[in-house]
């Protein structure tokens, strides 16, 4: 289990005068579910966008699956999948079409597209609604389709940017349950950003806490609680985010 698939060294990202990421160094292992925790504007999405080759870093370097993000973005994109924050489905397409479309965009042949789409539809539990346009879906169901869309690519790394933000409690529960199942069954390396501590505790093997662009702490929830002598992860997070001991 010592196979590193994501590696960053001294990663810095600046937007004019704003430092979004400040000297971030981390490593993520194959099969790991890694959570990026932080308050709004901490740099979680920026880090994810660098790792998915949507942003170039200002300084430092990032490697995904052995490729540098600035040098081999297409190679990396072939092996990863991204579920962007607050992403929507194509609402005029059915659940099946939404998923098959992404498979098609990867250049798979028709037989393979049908096989994978069918499997994903079963996996996300939407067999009965596969032929319905997603316009009529609840937020939780739409998110399931989006997760399915990312999974159809059979990625080596799955990036989920706040996968439960903007959906109701029940929808969030459905998505978390799906992600839990996936991590157990499929063993896909997953990087997810969130500010939801429940999500971290339920899903993640390790967590990195970002505060004002800096990686303030990294480790398993238990390790972090011990390191900061806190009762729970929330205390660790609040302490780091506010600079106060709880």
């Amino acid at each position: 289990m010592n196979d590193i698939v994501i590696k960053t060294e001294g990663l810095v990202k600046k937007f004019k005068n704003i430092v979004a990421l400040d000297n971030v160094t981390l490593q993520i292992q194959r099969g790991e579910v890694f959570g990026l925790l932080g308050p709004n504007g901490a740099g979680k999405t920026t880090l994810m966008r660098i790792l998915t080759c949507l942003f170039a870093p200002t300084e430092g370097r990032a490697e995904v699956l052995g490729y540098d993000v600035t040098e081999k973005p297409e190679e990396i994109r072939r092996m990863i999948a991204l579920l962007p924050q607050e992403a929507e489905t194509y609402e005029h397409l059915t659940a099946w079409e939404n998923i098959a479309y992404y498979a098609g965009m990867y250049g798979l042949d028709k037989k393979e597209i049908v096989y994978r789409t069918k499997r994903i539809i079963e996996l996300i539990g939407l067999n009965d609604r596969a032929g319905d346009v997603t316009k009529r879906f609840s937020s939780g169901m739409k998110r399931k389709v989006l997760v399915g869309r990312a999974l159809v690519l059979q990625p080596e790394i799955l990036f989920l940017d706040e996968p439960t933000t903007g959906i109701d409690v029940l929808g969030a529960r459905v998505v978390r349950h799906l992600l839990k199942q996936l991590s157990e069954r499929e063993k896909i390396t997953t990087v997810l950003t969130t500010h939801d501590l429940t999500e971290i505790q339920q899903l993640c093997d390790r967590v990195g806490i970002l505060v004002e662009g800096k990686l303030a702490a990294i480790g398993t929830p238990v390790e972090l609680e011990a390191q900061f002598k806190a009762v729970n992860l929330e205390d660790v997070f609040v302490g780091l985010a506010t600079g106060e001991r709880v």
Partner: peptide, 10 residues
């Protein structure tokens, strides 16, 4: 936010 997913494709 579907564009982000689209341009993240190879």
């Amino acid at each position: 936010k579907t564009l982000e997913g689209l341009i993240a494709l190879p």
